[in-house]
Design a protein around this nucleic acid. Sequence first.
DNA 1: GAATAAAAAGACCTTTTTATCTTTATTTTG
DNA 2: CAAAATAAAGATAAAAAGGTCTTTTTATTC
Lengths: 145, 145
Amino acid sequence: MLAKSTEYAIRALVFIELLNQEGNRPGVKQIAREIASPEAYTGKIMQILTKQGLVRSMKGRGGGFFFDHATRPLSLQKIIRVMEGESYFNKCGLGFNGCDSHAPCPIHSEYITAKKELFDLFEKQTIESLAQNVKDGLAVLNRPM
Amino acid sequence: MLAKSTEYAIRALVFIELLNQEGNRPGVKQIAREIASPEAYTGKIMQILTKQGLVRSMKGRGGGFFFDHATRPLSLQKIIRVMEGESYFNKCGLGFNGCDSHAPCPIHSEYITAKKELFDLFEKQTIESLAQNVKDGLAVLNRPM
DNA sequence: GAATAAAAAGACCTTTTTATCTTTATTTTG
DNA sequence: CAAAATAAAGATAAAAAGGTCTTTTTATTC
């Protein structure tokens, strides 16, 4: 449903939010360790997210990743849009290029309806709300042993 | 949302159903032409579908693909299960291995709810119902020019 | 049974995604 | 300013998905 890199991105950003709230700015190494992702690859993903302005970064000693007013609130939809591209949201369910209400594929309208609930979720849920779930003990960011 | 090969599979099967209803059994060449897919690759996909018993085939002159009582009805869910694997339906939204209600990822329960509508659609819609849409002129199987 | 037609099978090739390693640029600290 | 820490960038590699080509097997028709 989501590419692995998108999953890493979301997990990383939630972790950053959690640490920011404690007054810390995690670096790639710490992020990768905590969300169980490959370190260098996670670095690449963070580059994309930073370049696209979804999160901010500081180089050098004491540097790391953090959110500020310009980046908040950050919905899952924004992240998915950056990581998967616009087509994620409007691609035809059977892979037709010209699929629309004029010449619909056989599952066109039902598919749109079904996707809507999923996309609503992606719009409503934010890095902040997901982080809150973790803080409240309602969710975990890494597998318990 | 679905792999390209899964999209090809669904389109191919709908086309086969349409031709079966006219008393014909299309071969790989005709299928690929009609659903606008690469011929050899489509052949590979048909092999999988046939081997898994979702459709039947005959070799030799006059051969081709067709459905019979043993294969009907054929829901999208069955096709997706064969093409994408079981994990398509129960994979965690953020990619965690051990994600369940005991140690949920931050979007666990909402994600399950949102997916349900999509999966219901996949269960309800069948190759027969999709073919009917096309026959009724409500949908097309290839792009109009 | 020879010719033909078609699916099946196997060996490749290409592109995309995921992942690693090395080097460079930037920032902080002493 | 030197050392250390860290993100950014670049080159490469490994794995998966998508795609092609050739040969083999099976069936039909004459």
